[in-house]
């Protein structure tokens, strides 16, 4: 009996990681192919972002800073898409910018997937404007506090900002109804908190990757009104949007669909963690029983 426990424990301890890779791949691919997903519900950390947009004064613009590159897009892009859908559904102009060099392309993707396909009636410069990427990170934010035109005399198409109806009444960052930074690292949400949210007292919310979430929780709820963390945060926002706007179906949305494979992957990891500890327990029992 002791020998058998010891053998199983040794096998579990020395388990080749390629078996873990294989099981994870098979389960995730199966979940992807089956299309299984489970609609989520917004937690108290995500709901305030939705509520803020719902309760903005008519026509108040929203600044959306897409501070990520393609590597973080699977987690952060669904947030950008859901926020764009929500803003356009509620009639709030969106101003896109980025602190990342790849930001312009990330913005283009959201424009193409959401605005062009789902809101063909949306008019550039009236319903949304793209300022794009500029170098500088926190110093760029600092420059925009008093005047957007200090660093963005025109939008990416070359249109002067004074001719952009979406930004009528907006001089600096403090004139936005809400600023949201979807952040994959530095520069990102932390810089927005330090150089815009805290200084101007402008409502600020954020979205971040799963690994980045723990560093942003200390800022919630006093310095950021809400935080969407990883795909789960995006799925929660989609759920809130689906509940408030019946014309929006969460099940078709990328984050809600992505939660199926993510759930499967998490369950596989939990199963392997339990298996590893079962091996440890077996080893412990074998040692206790041995004379």
């Amino acid at each position: 009996m002791n020998d058998r426990c010891d053998r199983i424990a040794s096998w579990l301890e020395g388990l080749d990681r390629r078996w873990i890779f294989l099981v994870l791949a098979v389960v995730v691919v199966a979940a992807l192919l089956s299309g299984v997903s489970s609609p989520d519900r917004a937690t108290s950390v995500v709901q305030p972002i939705y509520d803020r947009i719902e309760n903005l004064p008519d026509g108040a613009p929203i600044l959306l800073s897409l501070d990520y590159s393609p590597s973080s897009a699977p987690e952060l892009e669904p947030m950008a898409e859901a926020l764009t859908q929500h803003a356009l559904l509620t009639g709030h102009p969106i101003c896109y910018m980025s602190l990342y060099p790849t930001g312009n392309n990330m913005i283009s993707r959201v424009e193409e997937r959401i605005i062009t396909r789902e809101f063909p009636q949306a008019v550039p410069a009236r319903d949304w404007v793209t300022l794009g990427f500029q170098v500088g990170g926190e110093m760029l934010i600092n420059s925009l506090r008093d005047s957007l035109t200090a660093r963005y005399p025109t939008d990416v198409t070359g249109r002067p900002l004074r001719d952009v109806p979406a930004l009528r009444g907006v001089r600096g960052l403090g004139d936005f109804g809400l600023i949201v930074s979807l952040s994959a690292g530095q520069p990102g949400l932390k810089e927005w908190i330090l150089y815009a949210g805290d200084v101007l007292d402008v409502p600020l919310a954020g979205g971040c990757t799963g690994v980045g979430a723990p560093q942003f929780f200390p800022y919630y709820p006093l310095q950021i009104l809400g935080l969407m963390s990883a795909l789960k945060g995006a799925a929660e926002y989609e759920a809130a949007l689906a509940r408030g706007h019946p014309e929006f179906t969460a099940a078709n949305q990328p984050a809600t669909r992505g939660m199926g494979p993510q759930s499967a992957a998490h369950l596989v990891i939990v199963a392997f963690i339990l298996l590893g500890n079962a091996g440890l327990l077996l080893r412990f029992l074998a040692r206790r029983r041995s004379p």
Binding site: P70, A265, I269
Partner: peptide, 20 residues
Amino acid sequence: HATLYSLLAFYIASASYRAF
């Protein structure tokens, strides 16, 4: 980018099995 970042899931799974 997507390919490299996706690989993380596999390494996290393997590291979790051994670390936790």
